[in-house]
Amino acid sequence: MNFRRQRQEEASVNLTPLIDVVFLLLIFFMVSTTFTRETQLKLDLPEAASGEQVDLREEKQIEMTISANGDIAINDKALIAPSFTTLKLALKRESAGDLALPLIITADAQTPHQSVIMAMDAAGQLGFTRLRLTTTQLEAGEDQ
């Protein structure tokens, strides 16, 4: 007797359903994720009746933002711990040794005075000579 051997079919895994499921999960996570900028601080600027309005924005400058609760961001990069030494290191890194760059301090109207003084002191110790404080223009007729 001569028996013929049966051909064995190759065992394979169909990847098409797996790819479909992964694609649907990817779409779900992309749609359900919210993107927020956590480096932006909400500010309510103080008002001033005097001062110069600066319209020209220089190409290279350092912008320091101080929120009402004392959080500090330099060029839209928030400092993890707003201490004096951290602030000095961040200013030194952002300036890359160029102390002639203008340093613009934008502080909320409710910011503790100590936070603004600490920022100015750190800039002074590093040797920054061009320092600006931002305010909003006091409306005509308002006296405080």
Rank of each mutant, 00 (worst) to 15 (best):
R37H: 13
R37D: 15
T39S: 15
L41S: 05
L41C: 02
K42W: 13
L43F: 10
D44C: 07
A48W: 04
S50A: 10
G51I: 03
G51E: 07
Q53V: 15
Q53S: 15
Q53K: 11
V54P: 10
D55N: 15
L56H: 15
E58G: 15
K60P: 02
Q61C: 00
E63P: 03
M64V: 14
M64F: 07
S67Q: 08
A68G: 08
A68L: 00
I72F: 12
I72P: 00
A73R: 03
A73Q: 03
N75C: 04
N75Q: 04
D76G: 02
F84P: 04
T85K: 12
T85L: 12
T86M: 09
L87G: 01
K88A: 06
L89F: 09
R93M: 08
E94W: 04
S95V: 02
A96L: 11
A96V: 01
G97D: 05
D98E: 08
L103R: 05
I104D: 04
I105L: 07
A107M: 01
Q110C: 08
Q114P: 07
V116Y: 04
I117V: 11
M118W: 11
A119M: 05
M120E: 15
A123D: 02
A123F: 01
A123S: 04
G124A: 12
Q125M: 12
G127W: 05
F128H: 05
T129I: 05
R130C: 10
R130P: 03
R130E: 14
L131C: 07
T135N: 01
T135H: 08
T136W: 00
